[in-house]
């Protein structure tokens, strides 16, 4: 058997080249592939925790032949898909999926306006961003561009469930770090954690800024199923908090000055007492 790294399509060719006509045809006919895609899309949809009985507008990143979009359709949602492979989109078009399709490279940022979508899903697509196929593409930048534009085009409180296959712990780290930099909160859910294909070692169980209450966090699936342990990343768009993240006062504010004075006092320096004039803005009038 070939070593596992040889099996990864990401290492063979860039996605727009790899998913050519013959590869797209596989997604049309192979019942195994269809089953896996459908199952994973169902799981991702479940993780979005959308309000029941409401038709939502969803985004499918890397929609491919629209298999995951069909799951969204069945659940009664309207969706828009984008993918980098024209051949896959042509297949999707020939299958007459209901959602609208768009030919686009997600690493350049998504071409959508702010706050458009109630949620986003992505099935086995995000890991493609971790590879640089050309000299000018930097995975770090492309990931950041993707997550930032995803953050923008989601509504407030909207969620994104991204299923992907990381190669190792480093890739996982890179993905979660980029998501956090873009302002997302949320966590990594590893289904079937005992599978041998899950990259172990430094797998972060959750992102540090876990703000979701434990109750509505989807549970990790434990029962082994045929598809191999896809760790989806569930992200949640939060309102950005301004100021310093470490809880200290904003620089140059009154609290910050008082804190600094306190430190100097503790060190034994002679410091003026705090008064109503401490750190007060100077009058704009000049004499």
């Amino acid at each position: 058997m070939a070593s596992s790294s040889k099996c990864r399509p990401e290492e063979q060719a860039p996605p727009d080249v790899f998913y050519n006509e013959s590869e797209a045809a596989k997604y049309l006919h192979s019942s195994r592939m269809i089953d896996i895609q459908t199952q994973m899309a169902e799981r991702a949809l479940e993780m979005l925790c959308l309000p029941e009985d409401e038709e939502c507008l969803l985004l499918d990143v890397g929609c491919g032949t629209g298999l995951s979009g069909e799951v969204l359709e069945e659940a009664g949602h309207q969706w828009v898909g984008c993918d980098i492979s024209r051949d896959m989109l042509n297949v999707a078009q020939s299958r007459e999926v209901e959602g609208d399709l768009c030919h686009h490279d997600m690493g350049c940022g998504l071409p959508f306006r702010q706050g458009m979508f109630d949620g986003a899903i992505s099935i086995s697509a995000v890991q493609w961003l971790c590879y640089s196929d050309r000299a000018e593409c930097n995975p770090r930048q492309r990931l950041l561009a993707f997550f930032q534009s995803l953050y923008k085009c989601l509504r407030r409180g909207g969620r994104a469930a991204l299923q992907f296959y990381p190669q190792d712990g480093d890739q996982l780290q890179l993905l979660t770090a980029s998501a956090m930099r873009a302002g997302f909160g949320g966590g990594l859910v590893v289904d079937f954690p005992h599978s041998s294909k899950v990259p172990s070692s430094e797998t972060p169980e959750t992102l540090p800024r876990q703000t979701r209450p434990a109750a509505d966090r989807p549970e990790t699936l434990q029962t082994p199923r045929e598809c191999t342990a896809p760790p989806p990343l569930v992200l949640r768009r939060e309102d950005r908090s301004y100021g310093r993240r470490d809880g200290r006062a904003t620089t140059k504010s009154r609290e910050w000055v008082i804190q600094k004075k306190e430190v100097q006092r503790r060190r034994g320096a002679v410091v003026r007492a705090d008064s109503k004039y401490t750190a007060r803005k100077r009058s704009k009038v000049r004499f």
């Binding site: 828009v80 609208d100 768009c102 350049c108 940022g109 959508f112 306006r113 458009m116 534009s149």
Partner: peptide
């Protein structure tokens, strides 16, 4: 037109 109303030029 719904999708058109969402699209904007990237970057």
């Amino acid at each position: 037109l719904l999708t058109h109303n969402m699209l904007m030029a990237p970057g």
